[in-house]
Design a protein around this nucleic acid. Structure first.
Lengths: 241, 241
DNA sequence: ATTGAATATTGGTATAGACAACTATATTGC
DNA sequence: GCAATATAGTTGTCTATACCAATATTCAAT
């Protein structure tokens, strides 16, 4: 179980070993772990070394400790990371729904000042503008307008756009999207949104504007989405530092 | 600087002391800290105790360490904390605005089924209900309804609520809020919200429902907030895994 | 001047032991 | 029976020490 001669630190070996027990279900949420001294004796390692392993797992929220009682497995194992950057397709799949798209418009436009600044390119530079209706279970969920510098992703076609853009960019072009920022606000649907999303006039909508970046920190895309408030809620995990 | 006879752990004293130096600007981003051995000798404490303080600050992203080189102050210590769980007061401060509150209502109510389930208590159990208007620069920003189990936080008074609830809970009761989840959706203001937030009828609003948890994974509070869409945008950082 | 080896300094891992603070259980005294 | 006390077991804090691994510096050989 623990190899003292391994170049891998002992505390790290123990960490992985405990994680394994949790993930395989041999340790269930709420279960008490053996005490630090028990681990120490069982593996012939110092209690401080055991503590280092446990402290790390506590920081990662796999375990929690109560002084005088013991160390226990966290109730809510590992929630999937929302606040993760996901494509619409991935997002809907995580919600157990089937995603599809309807391409409304696909063209190359010159960047206006605001867009050029957001994409970090020259004004009037060529930009793909992709306007799509996003559907879940064939019901309109969002209107999405994606802007990508045409110099960055060359040879984009409407065929590719109809399938998964992220898949093409990551698997074929080998560009790696690493993160971004997203601004969320509430609003009332405008005429175009009312029509395309098939909702009543004056319906509330959630507007999300995302900017995603590649490994080298260049801006990859700007996405403006309008989500139907009656069909979409946004959930995030919070951590207090 | 360090009081060995204080009931406050030495590593915690050192932690606060270093944080102070960073926040006061005496240690600037990129600066190297004294080495662990220097701290150890200067304060007459063990190197392992110094390490415990530094490890905590590294976990909180105040510092970073490089083996063989030293320990340094993080470049962007405050940038990272969106998707961080913040109180309204902290949130507004980060936006450069002054926060205040108006207490609308403070009472103890019996939990209905939904609330009892969310707070993980018995149905009809006593729950503090705190209704507050949150203002930024003295303009209404949000209507906030907070629900806390009365058995968990005893002796809450309207005086405490008028000041900072998080401060009281963390500093006086020594409860540690570690995280939570938040659901965001768009809607139209109802009559009460229109009146209290001083907005036109049919105005769009952003509704956020937060559940925060303590170290031992018990639910601490449920907060339902209604934010004026014209005054509030929500920004998060995204990471792709 | 440049290279290369030795030395010093830094953080990383690990040990052994001590006592404190807290919890649960068993025992004692009434 | 019940309450107070003792005891054992848990995590929390702290010390002192040792050696490893990575980096920086010093100094000698070329």
């Amino acid at each position: 179980m623990i190899d003292k001669n391994s170049p891998i630190p002992i505390y790290h070996q123990l960490e992985e070993s405990i994680k394994q027990l949790i993930e395989s279900g041999q340790l269930k949420p709420g279960d008490a772990l053996p005490s630090e001294r028990e681990y120490s004796e069982q593996f012939g390692i110092s209690r401080m070394t055991v503590r280092q392993a446990i402290i790390n797992l506590v920081n990662e929220r796999f375990l929690y400790r109560v002084r005088g009682k013991g160390t226990f497995v966290m109730e809510q194992k590992f929630e999937q990371n929302l606040q993760g950057l996901t494509s619409f397709t991935e997002d809907m799949k995580a919600r157990g729904m089937e995603a599809s798209s309807k391409l409304i418009n696909f063209e190359i436009i010159p960047a206006d000042a605001k867009l050029a600044s957001a994409l970090n390119i020259q004004e009037h530079g060529p930009v793909y503008k992709i306007k799509r209706i996003r559907l879940a279970e064939n019901i309109p969920m969002a209107l999405e307008r994606t802007y990508i510098s045409a110099n960055l992703v060359q040879g984009l076609t409407s065929e590719i756009v109809k399938n998964s853009l992220y898949y093409y960019v990551e698997e074929t072009l080998h560009m790696k999207i690493v993160g971004g920022t997203q601004v969320i606000e509430a609003s009332i649907a405008n005429k175009e949104e009312v029509k395309l999303l098939e909702i009543p006039e004056l319906s509330p909508v959630m507007i999300m504007e995302r900017s995603s970046k590649l490994e080298d920190n260049t801006v990859f895309e700007i996405v403006k989405s309008t989500y139907r408030a009656d069909r979409y809620k946004f959930m995030i995990d919070l951590k207090r530092f």
